[in-house]
């Protein structure tokens, strides 16, 4: 069976003042139907850019993307139209992701209008159905976004993404702008939808507790590169990369008797503009060994389906 989505050596560079910004630098992964890939990393590591690039909201610098076995790296207009019905996005900020001058129903209906396959009556019917699916009361039909709270707004965003019945949705930090109680509601909604409709998610976040709960596989990114990838349980039990270890140690335990010792990462983030070859985490790494780490890091499969890009991973673990 071919994977739903396969990304090979994807690169996205931006030309900025002072050089070339390597936002996404050689990312590869596969995602199966109905599965969730969690993408974690700190701010500015390129996780959002990765999602946008896969959806062709940004141009691809190099690399390849396959969707259901078909090369979609550089689609023509017609292919792109078809593609966007299969791939959707849910945004981080439920305030700026909804047009303030469109009512809830207008926002949800717009993808259907663009698709142009339904009669007006069918669209109304479908919109009602979608609102019901995401748990929006029918009386909010003509409400404007400013009349809704954050959670309901995000539900509108989810309904808009679902309207075209996509097979793959990029969730770009969909809950980080919400209250914790609302976060749980939205995450459970996403999980229910996945079970019901078999959608695959790429779940971009910096919130590790969320990603553990929702993901099948987790990919850890650092400055545009993948440093580690493993199944969710494996990664949390056996983090191999020093950066992942530091990240995981920063999760707060709800048990006050459990003593945790966070690994403090020191030093500054290396600039992603014109980066030098070699490990990008080197300057901040506890285990850095200048000579070895200057070499380009290769992604190795240390355990079955557990990849890590660190030249010293064998020694330190």
């Amino acid at each position: 069976m071919t994977a739903l989505l396969e990304v090979k050596n994807l690169k996205k560079y931006f030309t900025v003042k002072g050089g070339v910004l390597h936002a996404v630098d050689g990312i590869s992964f596969t995602l199966d139907k109905g599965k969730t890939l969690g993408v974690v990393g700190e701010s500015g590591c390129g996780k959002t850019t990765l999602g946008r690039t896969i959806l062709h909201l940004l141009d691809i610098t190099s690399g390849q993307i396959f969707f259901e076995g078909k090369d979609i790296t550089r689609p023509n207009k017609k292919e792109l139209r078809a593609l966007r019905e299969d791939m959707q996005i849910i945004f981080q900020d439920p305030y700026s992701s909804l047009n303030p001058r469109k009512t809830v129903s207008e926002t949800i209906m717009e993808p259907l209008i663009m698709q142009g396959k339904m009669t007006k009556a069918e669209m109304w019917e479908e919109t009602k159905k979608l609102m019901d699916t995401v748990g929006l009361a029918e009386r909010l039909y003509n409400a404007y976004p400013h009349e809704l709270d954050g959670g309901r707004r995000q539900r509108v965003g989810v309904a808009r993404a679902l309207a075209l019945k996509p097979k793959f949705i990029v969730c770009d930090e969909p809950v980080s702008a919400l209250d914790v109680s609302i976060q749980a509601q939205i995450i459970n909604l996403l999980l229910d939808l996945q079970e019901e409709l078999g959608i695959a998610y790429m779940f971009v976040t910096h919130d590790l507790s969320v990603v553990k709960y929702i993901s099948d596989d987790i990919m850890v990114m650092y400055l545009g590169q993948m440093v580690e990838k493993a199944s969710s349980s494996e990664l949390f039990q056996k983090p191999l990369h020093p950066y992942t270890q530091a990240l995981l140690s920063a999760i707060l335990e709800p048990d006050i008797h459990k003593k945790t010792k966070p690994i403090i990462v020191q030093g500054e983030l290396t600039s992603p503009i014109n980066p030098k070859p070699g490990c990008r985490f080197m300057n901040r790494c506890r285990f850095a060994e200048p000579k070895k780490c200057r070499e380009p890091q290769v992604l190795e499969e240390l355990y079955p389906n557990h990849f890590v890009a660190c030249c010293r991973s064998k020694e330190i673990n």
């Binding site: 959806l55 992701s97 047009n99 808009r160 309207a163 075209l164």
Partner: peptide, 24 residues
């Protein structure tokens, strides 16, 4: 972001300007 959302649902430049940018 709603401009990007509009792009993601296949809205063309003209529609984005007319429906999303000008009214706002």
């Amino acid at each position: 972001e709603f401009i990007e959302a509009a792009k993601a649902i296949n809205a063309g430049s003209f529609r984005i300007i007319r429906e999303h940018i000008i009214p706002n």
